Computed example of a mutant assay.
Amino acid sequence: MNIKHQARGGFRQVADDELLVQAETVIAAMDSNANFATPTPDLTAVGAAKDDFSAKLAVARKRSGPEETELKNQSREALAELLKQLAFYVSTTANGNLAVILSSGFQATAYPRRGRVPEQPYAVRLNDGRLSGQLTFTLPKVPGALFYEYRYGTLDEATNEPLWGEPILTTSSRDNLIAGLEEGVRYHVQVRAVNGYGRTEWSDPVSMRVR
């Protein structure tokens, strides 16, 4: 993978007003942008989240009570999460092309400069999801990783080895949801970390029976 840049999707340290400006800039830049035919999430959803945050921010500044502040914070988190997902879409679609990334309205960030593949993930932990047929997995964040790939599958009785599905991308190391699983069946999960210099080995497999 010869990617050198990605869209910057972290907004934790960004001020409220700056977050609004960033959202407005991205929506305007990506609207009818031929580089991004099918934005994920949809720009309409991002726009609705931006408008909701703008309205709740105005109320919180006017009244400044704990309830208004909490509602504003919840709305901010929702908008930031959508922008993070959109930045991931831009990064994967642009495939390292800096001009394409910048055309999205997102700022670009370079890959780690140390020239090394990240360390192999470890201590992957599985938990029940909120609903039947779901699992979640969490692992310690891998330094230098830009995103993760995970795969899951059931055990092949003939070989006593898991039958792995296709790798799936995620930007988060925490609370990743795997849904649509068969109840009562034990599933095995592996994760690997990825940056501009390559992929790690798969983590040791972990397994859990779905409730």
Score class of each variant (00 low, 15 high):
I27E: 05
R186P: 10
S132W: 10
T44E: 10
P143N: 10
R151L: 10
G105I: 03
S103P: 00
G129V: 02
Y122T: 15
P205N: 05
R76I: 13
T93P: 01
E201C: 04
N95T: 05
E161V: 15
Q13W: 14
T171I: 13
G133I: 02
L181F: 01
R12Q: 08
T92R: 14
F11G: 04
Q13F: 15
K4F: 04
L155W: 03
N73A: 15
G10R: 15
R211G: 12
D17W: 03
V206N: 12
G198Q: 03
S75M: 05
E24G: 06
S173D: 09
P167V: 00
S207V: 05
T154V: 15
E67Q: 04
Y152H: 15
D128C: 06
Q134Y: 01
S173Y: 08
Y148H: 03
S32C: 03
D156T: 13
P205R: 04
Y89I: 03
E24N: 09
F11S: 04
D51E: 14
V210W: 10
N195C: 04
F36R: 03
V191P: 08
D31W: 14
P121V: 13
Y89M: 02
N2Q: 13
V189M: 02
K50M: 07
T44H: 08
D52I: 07
G9L: 07
I3A: 08
T136S: 07
T136Y: 00
K72F: 06
S54H: 12
G9K: 07
A193E: 01
V210K: 12
S75T: 06
G96N: 10
V14R: 11
L98T: 02
P140Q: 06
K4N: 14
F106Y: 13
G153M: 08
E77Y: 11
R130W: 01
V14N: 00
E68Y: 04
A145I: 13
T138H: 03
R114L: 10
R8M: 09
K50Y: 06
P118C: 10
V189W: 01
L83K: 05
L163F: 04
L102V: 00
E161N: 11
T200Y: 09
L20A: 07
S132C: 02
T40V: 13
S32T: 10
L169Q: 07
Q134R: 06
A15Q: 12
N33G: 00
K84H: 12
I168E: 09
A87C: 07
L163M: 12
T138C: 11
V90Y: 02
K62A: 13
Y111D: 03
W164F: 09
T138V: 13
Q134F: 02
D17G: 05
E157S: 15
A179G: 12
L155Y: 04
H188M: 09
G133W: 01
D204V: 12
V117D: 00
N73K: 10
N33S: 01
K141D: 04
P162H: 09
